[in-house]
Design a protein around this nucleic acid. Structure first.
Length: 473
RNA sequence: GGCGCUAUCGUCUAACGGUUAGGACGGAGCCCUCUCAAGGCUUAAAUACGGGUUCGAUUCCCGUUAGCGCUACCA
């Protein structure tokens, strides 16, 4: 039974790339009847924030893909230290007494790669113990066997066989001088302890995996299978970041704009993964059924957004697809939070706009005239039908006033009455409908007229026609 | 700089070494039609470059170029 984990560090809002990583882990777990573990990797006390923790929970809960187990890394420090000292005990790590402040960026200068602080890895055990006993602060570093000719080797489920010469790996830290574990140590210690079988994460960790393999080996644990995911990029080729790309990288932005959670999940799945059978729109069950590590691509994927169009066109299309696929009543319920109207009215309006919105939020602009007490001001010229004039518009509206006063106020009743009226006036049906549509909706493009009139009701419709006639006088 | 990874239409992607290089979104056009959508049909659009290997390379190998990632006592 596979056990997978998503291990975000709570140092910012939930990123769409992180959401995708979570989704892939979740799908892998469900596809293989495994366990999905959420673990907060909060060993960086300096940068952790409560707001970030909330953002992560909010985002993940919205996706509606529940996890099975939850852990907080900060509550497992004893385990991490135990693993670190066990590695030290085997002689595979050493104390580095170099003051923390010195030479961070200078280490890896243009000269070449920084590998270790000279002198420290050669310190005798006695000397090391003596200085530690004397209270001198130190970091614990992994002793990479760079004097050996070999390499660290592992097989990535996505990228295949990976190897890196020992000589190219630096002596990375396991424990900081304040005794806190580093990410590398804590992550591996926890993965081993939680019996994680597959580490599915972003490709930015591919290089780190060599270090992790070393830690698992040193700790005497069998390393999980690594599966690295291609990264999500911005159209400018840069890694997505809130700083430069704004809120489009945050999951909550999608939620607030009215993406259906599953449509969002569906979209993210198509970035860097393919079922290889041209399927695009898929239900959750289908995704679980189709998801495999073999389907994961190796090249980075760009999320195609611009300043004018903050959402990828394909994301929008998929959302519209899923909206259309919803039962009308269900969609009405989803729409409710976006608009000041009761459930009854919403259910009546929904069928009229279901095929016309890409985002739930679009209901605010597409259906505004249903909720507005008073129509937004429009130009009287809008009332004039194609190949007609103001006089025709007025004639149409005056006739409509009579017809609507008496007609049966249903889709079919209205259509019959209005078409007959057009014939009576000797004009095309379109010329009849156009002025009425504008009078009633305040604009030329709107949902189908008869259903709209029905939903609006006789009183409102007549009132708006009256106002339009006044505009023409 | 060192190391690692990647490279098919604008974007997401498909293609046991043998296809007219397929699909989707978006674009253009047509049809349908009370406007707008939705739907249907048609269309433009890609194998980064150079060498190999092979009867034959999108596919395998090498190089170049470009991009990304890692190179912290961040994760």
């Amino acid at each position: 039974m596979p056990r997978v984990r998503f291990a975000p560090s709570p140092t910012g809002f939930l990123h769409i790339g992180s959401a995708r990583t979570y989704i892939f882990n979740w799908l892998y777990a469900r596809h293989n009847a495994g366990t999905m573990i959420l673990r907060l990797d909060d060993t960086d006390v300096e940068r952790n924030t409560e707001a970030s923790v909330n953002s992560i929970f909010d985002g993940l809960r919205w996706l509606d893909l529940p996890w099975d187990e939850f852990y907080k890394q900060s509550e497992r420090l004893a385990l991490h230290r135990e693993v670190a000292w066990a590695i030290f005990g085997k002689g595979l790590a050493y104390r580095d007494f170099t003051p923390a402040a010195v030479g961070d960026s200078e280490k890896s200068g243009a000269q070449g790669t920084w590998l270790c602080n000279p002198g420290m890895r050669e310190l005798s055990r006695e000397e090391s113990d003596r200085r530690a006993a004397a209270g001198e602060p130190f970091a614990l570093r992994f002793r990479v066997p760079r004097e050996q000719a070999g390499a660290v080797v592992f097989t990535d489920a996505v990228y295949g066989e990976q190897s890196k010469a020992y000589a190219d790996l630096e002596d990375f830290a396991l424990l900081r001088s304040d005794g806190m574990p580093t990410y590398h140590l804590a992550s591996c210690a926890d993965d081993a302890d939680l019996r994680i079988t597959h580490i599915i994460r972003g490709q930015e960790h591919l290089s780190n995996a060599f270090k992790h393999q070393l830690i698992f080996d040193a700790a005497g644990a069998e390393a999980p299978t690594f599966a690295h995911l291609p990264l999500l990029m911005a159209p400018d080729g840069m890694k997505l970041s809130k700083r430069v790309h704004g809120p489009v990288v945050s999951v909550t932005t999608y939620r607030d704009a009215g993406f259906l959670p599953h449509a969002f999940v569906n979209f993210l799945c198509l970035l860097g993964w393919s079922p290889k059978n041209d399927r695009e729109r898929m239900s959750r069950e289908e995704l679980v059924e189709l998801f495999t590590l073999e389907g994961i691509n190796r090249a980075n994927a760009v999320v195609n957004f611009t300043e004018e169009n903050p959402f990828d066109a394909k994301a929008l299309w998929l959302n519209a697809e899923h909206i259309r696929g919803l039962a009308s009543d269900q969609l009405a319920a989803e729409l409710l939070p976006f608009v000041p109207v009761g459930p009854e009215k919403m259910r009546q309006i929904t069928p009229l706009i279901q095929e016309r919105i890409k985002l739930l939020k679009d209901v605010q602009t597409v259906a505004d005239f249903f909720f507005a007490e008073k129509l937004a001001p429009y130009d009287a010229a809008e009332l004039v039908p194609k190949k007609g004039d103001a006089a025709m518009a007025k004639r149409v509206l005056e006739r409509a006033r009579e017809v609507l006063a008496g007609a049966e106020f249903t889709h079919d009743g209205l259509e019959g009455a209005l078409r007959a009226a057009a014939e009576g006036l000797g004009i095309k049906a379109g010329q009849m409908f156009e002025p009425i549509r504008v009078a009633v909706c305040g604009r030329k493009t709107a949902p189908p007229l008869f259903g709209t009139l029905e939903a609006l009701g006789r009183e409102t419709a007549l009132g708006r026609i009256e106002e339009a006639i006044a505009k023409l006088s």
